[in-house]
């Protein structure tokens, strides 16, 4: 018989694994203007640290002005990184000889996924999505649906995106109301304190 509960290291070390349990993905969108030596392979020293902290690059603008004869190169980068990881990222740039010229405004991005079970399509799915999207403070970011058979309830994972935890909670309140009216079951993540 298999060991009936998670391995001891998981049970033992609650404090360290805390972050992992937190199911709202909280990211920060940040734009940066960086300066580095203009030599082959240097872009890696920008990209690698971002990937190491679990970040995601949204855009890279890498312009070379032929009129300027300089041995340095400017790169503008827009990326999404986990909350609290900006400081280590800047430190990592410094160690690799990348100078940070400017850091743009940080924007918080919070995502929460819930599972909806019921007749989502037949109860006007675009109306359901519209109830969230029309708030102005939250939007439906992704949908993933499994429809087992006609007339059987479908199961849908819905991810809602917003700029703060408070607004995510407001959006969820709206969704709970809709779920009550349209009679579908909403399964929410267990939140940690």
């Amino acid at each position: 018989m298999p060991f009936p509960f998670p391995p001891y290291n998981v049970v033992k070390d609650l404090s360290r694994s805390r972050l992992k349990y937190f199911q709202d993905a909280i990211n920060v969108q940040v734009s940066m203007k960086l300066e580095m030596k203009d030599s082959p392979g240097q872009l890696v020293s920008v990209i690698q640290p971002i990937s190491e902290i679990g970040g995601n690059i949204l855009s890279v603008i890498h312009e070379r002005d032929p009129a300027v004869k300089s041995d340095v190169l400017d790169v503008q980068i827009l990326c999404e990184i986990p909350e609290g990881s900006l400081e280590p990222l800047l430190e990592s740039f410094k160690q690799r000889g990348v100078s940070v010229l400017r850091i743009g405004e940080e924007r918080l991005l919070v995502r929460r996924s819930v599972i909806l079970i019921g007749h989502l399509i037949h109860t006007d799915i675009s109306d359901t999505i519209g109830k969230i999207d029309s708030t102005g403070f939250a939007e439906v970011h992704a949908l993933s649906m499994i429809m087992p058979a006609i007339n059987e309830p479908s199961s849908t994972k819905m991810t809602i995106k917003s700029d703060s935890l408070a607004n995510i909670n407001r959006a969820l309140d709206i969704l709970r109301d809709v779920a009550r009216q349209k009679e579908f079951l909403i399964i929410e993540p267990l939140e940690d304190v």
Partner: peptide
Amino acid sequence: VSPRIIPKSHPLVVEETLNAVAIDTEMAGE
């Protein structure tokens, strides 16, 4: 009481008929 989404690595995710309860306290933590 409600069905909830929970990470598989969470200590409350126990197998079969087991029960599990987490107590959050001020001094002792969880």
